[in-house]
Design a binder for these strands. Structure first.
Lengths: 223, 223
DNA sequence: GTCTATATATGGATAGAC
DNA sequence: GTCTATCCATATATAGAC
């Protein structure tokens, strides 16, 4: 298993497989991406893939693990923090957008859930559901406290999740500004939700403090 | 070609193929959906598909044509209408969401663009780009007139497009309310954009008049 | 308009050498 | 850790009967 001492540098080839696979999977879909294509992109022969991963599904599994586990962990950290719902939601949108933009993997694929249709990947579909539920929870508590306008919390959650899913597409664009866009996106959505939009600046600074908490641990893959 | 007299009732089997194919394509992706599966869902043998469509790609082509052509046509109608940018954007979000919810086809697939990766489907990718550009145009003109807050128009457009793409996913949910949600979604986004949120009700009624215009023609497929 | 039979290609994964 | 050769399953599409 060549366990690394310093937490980084897992294998080299293995990481390159994940990166190239994420791009191909996002572009051509799960069954549309062949192991030959992945191998060619990495620069090894097709059977060599199976030294690093037991099968094609295992590659996707690892990608979703690296993408979703930190996302849910970060959101859980936000939930339990001491802050107003608006600040939590602001930090969620800003933090998630930043995380997506900084990720070495191209996770556009997860927008469509196509790869997740495999029954073996059901646990990850469950993680997405959990993420959506927690987002919903923040919105509802904001509505109950009066900080958010009344309205269907489900719809507001779809708006947030829809934007975050879209953020995975930003990797394709040269228009994205890593520095300002995550915060601007959060402000745009919060303005739509806040009962009193003039409180946006308070929310923003409260969220800035919270964001320190939104630094998910990098999980150690068991494979 | 058995040209229909009354505009409806194209073929029967052909329509059923499109409906079942849209579901399967959205669930399993383009290359993940086999012609055998589609045929089985329709209740015919696999080779019988090729009587109605020359090949698998032609099915996807027709689906995207039926989905995207009305969408762009409706948006173009809105653009040339006499109304404020905010009213146009409101009508766009409400109208598009309604159209998506009413569509007989499950177009979740187009969220990921996966099927569109085929070079032969490039024209439809172009249509999506056009739709996004027109949306961007409305937002920019609203910012220039001062009706919308300053901010990156690209980001605001991504928010709108992200939500509309997400709306394709609503077919999976039993939480969606066809009547109220399209309008509520439009209001939520507009509140985030308007310089003066108190004008939302004026915008809403201006949009209601516009929506009559947002009734795209059903295109006659050439195939 | 739908069927059975089948040609032909391509994909995931293994065996075993180096 | 990577290679070549190869097995076996599955996919699209065609041929031709009914």
């Amino acid at each position: 298993m060549t366990a690394p001492k310093h937490g980084k540098e897992t294998s080299g080839t293995r990481d390159r497989i994940l990166i190239e696979a994420s791009r191909l999977l996002s572009t051509n879909g799960y069954r549309g991406t062949t192991t030959r294509e992945i191998a060619a992109a990495v620069g090894i022969s097709q059977p060599s893939l199976f030294f690093h991963f037991s099968n094609k599904r295992a590659i996707v599994e690892e990608l979703y693990r690296r993408d979703l586990v930190p996302a849910v962990a970060g959101l859980e950290n936000l939930i339990v923090a001491e802050a107003s719902p608006a600040a939590k939601l602001f930090a969620l949108i800003q933090g998630e957008t930043t995380r997506i933009l900084d990720s070495p993997y191209d996770m556009r694929a997860h927008i469509s859930y196509e790869a997740l249709n495999d029954p073996d990947l059901a646990p990850f579909r469950e993680l997405i559901r959990q993420f959506d539920d927690l987002t919903n929870l923040i919105i509802r508590s904001g509505q109950e406290s009066g900080q958010f306008d009344a309205g269907d919390p489900w719809l507001a959650q779809q708006m947030v999740s829809g934007f975050l899913a879209r953020a995975n597409l930003f990797v394709l664009s040269d228009e994205v500004r890593r520095q300002s866009h995550p915060e601007e996106a959060a402000a745009l959505i919060l303005r739509g939700l806040l009962s009193d939009p003039t409180t946006l600046d308070e929310v923003r600074s409260e969220a800035a403090a919270l964001l320190a908490r939104y630094v998910p641990d990098v999980p150690t893959p068991p494979d």
